[in-house]
Amino acid sequence: MKLSSYQEKLNKENKTDFSDLKAVFINCTLKKSPEKSHTSGLISMSAEIMEENGVHVDIIRAVDHKIAFGVYPDMTEYGWEKDDWPAIQKKIMEADILVIGTPIWLGEKSSIATQVIERLYGFSGETNEHGQYAYYGRVGGCLVTGNEDGIKHVSMNVLYSLQHLGYVIPPQADAGWIGEAGPGKSYMDKGSGGPENEFTNRNTTFMTWNLMHMAKILKAHNGVPAYGNQRTEWDASSHKDHPNPEYR
C-alpha cells in the first residue's frame, strides 16, 4: 500500500521510538491465500505505518490455519485432532497491539472474526504476573471493509469484545471502507476509490498512531496499575460479604 505524502511526512518527522513494540493483525477474510483479500489492503496501510516507525508486525490470515471451534486455549484437549490456535495465541500474547480486520457480511463481522474472538475469549481467564487478566496492558483496534453498511456496528462489537477481555481501546481505534451497496467494486478493485478515500485514510492513520501511542504509554508504565483489578487477590480474599448463592 503506497502511503500518501502526509503519511510519509508523519513517519519521517516522528520523534518517538516505537521499536520496542510488537503488533499482530488478524485478517478475518473468508478467502484463503493466495486469493485477493480486500481487507488485507486496508490492513497493509496501517501495518506499513507501524513498520516504518520500527514496530515489529505479524499479519495472520486466520482462514489459512486449522483453527478449532471452542472457547478453551487448546481444543486438542477437547477432542479436536488439530488446532493451530495455540501458536497464534502465543504471538498475540507477545504483542503489544492487536488489530482485527474483517469484511462485512449481512451487516455483521465475518464468521472467522467471530471464531477468532471466541478463541481469544478462551484465554481470557488466564492471569498475568500481577494477578490481572492476561490481556491487560495491551491495546486493540479494528479495520473493516465491505460493500454494505455496517462499519460502526461491526467496530462496536469487535472493540467491545476486546475491551471486555482486558484490552485498552485508545481514541478512534477503528477505521473502514465500504463501497457502493451491492455487487459493486471492493476496496482493492481498480477504480474503487478505496485506497484514495480521504475519510478512510485519515481514520486509518489516526487509529494506527493512537494504537502506537497508547501501547508505548502502557509499556512505559508496566501496563495497567495492578490495584483493585487483580483476580488472584480477589479469589484469595476472605472478606466476601456477598458470596455467590449456592444452588440447590
Results as ranks from 00 to 15, higher is better:
166 G>T: 07
134 A>D: 01
129 E>T: 06
72 Y>M: 14
135 Y>C: 01
139 V>I: 05
138 R>Y: 01
71 V>D: 03
11 N>L: 15
58 D>L: 13
92 I>Y: 06
85 W>M: 07
24 V>F: 10
202 R>I: 02
101 G>F: 08
144 V>A: 09
81 E>N: 07
235 D>S: 12
195 P>E: 15
69 F>K: 10
122 G>C: 08
24 V>E: 06
12 K>A: 15
82 K>T: 13
193 G>L: 12
4 S>E: 14
57 V>Q: 06
214 M>G: 00
100 I>A: 05
9 K>H: 15
20 D>P: 00
63 V>S: 05
178 I>H: 03
90 K>T: 13
119 R>A: 03
109 K>G: 00
51 E>C: 00
102 T>H: 12
94 E>D: 14
63 V>W: 10
200 T>G: 01
212 M>D: 03
53 N>V: 06
125 G>T: 12
137 G>A: 04
120 L>V: 02
43 I>L: 10
169 I>E: 04
135 Y>M: 07
175 A>K: 12
82 K>N: 12
109 K>D: 00
34 P>H: 11
225 P>M: 02
247 Y>K: 13
188 M>D: 11
202 R>P: 00
102 T>M: 11
147 N>K: 09
151 I>V: 14
110 S>M: 10
176 G>A: 12
209 W>E: 05
204 T>I: 08
183 P>A: 10
58 D>C: 02
139 V>A: 03
72 Y>K: 15
194 G>K: 14
71 V>A: 12
38 H>E: 06
32 K>W: 00
87 A>F: 01
6 Y>E: 12
31 K>Y: 06
130 H>E: 12
74 D>N: 14
186 S>M: 14
229 N>M: 02
116 V>E: 11
39 T>K: 11
14 N>H: 05
244 N>A: 14
91 K>V: 05
215 A>P: 02
49 I>D: 10
229 N>K: 04
245 P>V: 10
109 K>F: 04
129 E>R: 11
19 S>H: 11
71 V>Y: 01
166 G>A: 04
4 S>F: 08
17 D>V: 09
46 S>E: 01
233 E>H: 07
207 M>T: 01
214 M>R: 12
175 A>H: 07
166 G>K: 07
124 S>P: 09
140 G>M: 07
35 E>R: 14
70 G>F: 00
236 A>K: 13
89 Q>G: 11
70 G>K: 04
185 K>N: 07
83 D>G: 05
172 Q>E: 13
32 K>Q: 11
17 D>E: 08
171 P>E: 11
183 P>Q: 13
25 F>G: 03
235 D>E: 15
54 G>F: 05
86 P>E: 07
164 H>E: 14
152 K>I: 00
233 E>N: 09
135 Y>L: 03
192 S>R: 14
86 P>N: 08
121 Y>R: 06
223 G>A: 08
226 A>E: 01
5 S>Q: 14
196 E>S: 15
236 A>D: 12
99 V>F: 02
194 G>Q: 13
143 L>Q: 12
177 W>F: 07
187 Y>W: 09
143 L>C: 08
190 K>Y: 02
227 Y>S: 12
46 S>G: 07
103 P>Y: 08
230 Q>M: 09
54 G>D: 05
90 K>A: 12
204 T>G: 05
202 R>G: 00
